[in-house]
Write a protein that binds this DNA or RNA. Structure first.
Lengths: 194, 194
DNA sequence: TTTCAAAGAGACCGAACGTTCTACCTCTCG
DNA sequence: CGAGAGGTAGAACGTTCGGTCTCTTTGAAA
């Protein structure tokens, strides 16, 4: 049994919460250290610096999303239902309390430099998501799953971004309509019975 | 003739460029003052502080977008072409050099507090955009223009956000396909000949 | 010519930033 | 028992932050 440091967990937990709700550049490590009830020295024993803490924050969120998506997909009855389950997990996120948009898109807005580790972490997670969605459309019988997958991701990005700027329910409605339209259009053209 | 301060123009110009390409919290006023070849005192003579400069930056971009959109709309032959023209202005932006996403979405990511003036400036511009698009779909003959308008905005947000994270051409392709699909679906159901 | 606002030059402020340091405590494992 | 890792506590580092200050120079209108 690997003993996971208690202080490290508190550190990463508060970092996740504070970075997500308030932004990254806006909050200093003093805030995180104080709210995690940890001293500065402890932070720098577990992380080389703020940058590494930010990357760890994003990777913890990425792990969470991967778990959620895996669960949603594997517990779906059909390929089409898998996509609907993914859509539902997105609408659930958007309508949940304290929703502040996509952690990765927000991070990318703060770290525009493509070479920066934080930006790279964002790109890595987005690549995983894109290929995962493409696999779903491939399972749906589409020979060329990229176009509908990109369409789905575009709707998802728009919904996640606008979800904390306008009425979340309306955004969710528009999103699920779009996804249903995408599924209908696909079956109407590529025509392989579900 | 109202003499517009030369220094103020330089200030706002460099602020626009630097804030857009590097983010807002990341750059201090020293950078802006230095690149604008202006002293600190001059900055604080024209703006009460950094916050006001940020708002001025966003409003200058908003003015630019309004002009572009007005021109695109008025020079279109039909209501449907107006929407296509708007879509084209978006793809043009995405594929242009130095594209870093939507200035407003990026700003919102850095200012999550809904009461903050910067956040409010973002919301104001987004409201204008939403109503403008809704008017276009209304002109297209749709009795209930909100759903397709929201769909359009969602695609736009997704495209603008992803346009600087993945291949811009692919994003544009997906976006115009989505818009065309939206127009087709609309005419196929609401059924008023163009 | 006088006047006055705009701008330049640059020192200065307190605060916050991310980071490093020493010193001491307290477990657990060998 | 003793060593060492992980934790606490807190001072301190130099830098940058946003913002204010005084003083001088410029230039055009009154």
């Amino acid at each position: 049994m690997v003993k996971v440091s208690e202080a490290r967990l508190r550190l990463l937990g508060t970092a996740t919460r504070v970075f997500y709700t308030e932004g990254i550049h806006s909050v200093g490590i003093d805030r995180i250290v104080a709210e995690a009830q940890v001293t500065r020295a402890t932070l720098y024993r577990h992380f080389t610096g703020k940058e590494e803490l930010v990357v760890a924050y994003l990777e913890s969120v990425a792990q969470l999303e991967r778990d959620q998506l895996d669960h949603a997909i594997t517990s779906a009855a059909s390929p089409a239902d898998s996509i609907r389950a993914v859509a539902r997990s997105i609408t659930t996120a958007i309508t949940s309390d304290g929703f502040r948009g996509c952690a990765f898109l927000n991070a990318a807005a703060e770290y525009p430099d493509p070479d920066h580790p934080v930006h790279q972490a964002v790109l890595a997670h987005r690549n995983w998501f894109a290929t995962t969605i493409a696999t779903l459309f491939s399972d749906l019988g589409d020979a060329n799953p990229q176009p509908p997958a990109r369409h789905f991701v575009m709707l998802r990005d728009g919904a996640m971004t606008a979800g904390c700027l306008t009425n979340p329910e309306e955004v969710c409605n528009t999103f699920v309509r779009g996804v249903e339209g995408l599924l209908n259009y696909r079956t109407a053209t590529t025509a392989k019975p579900a």
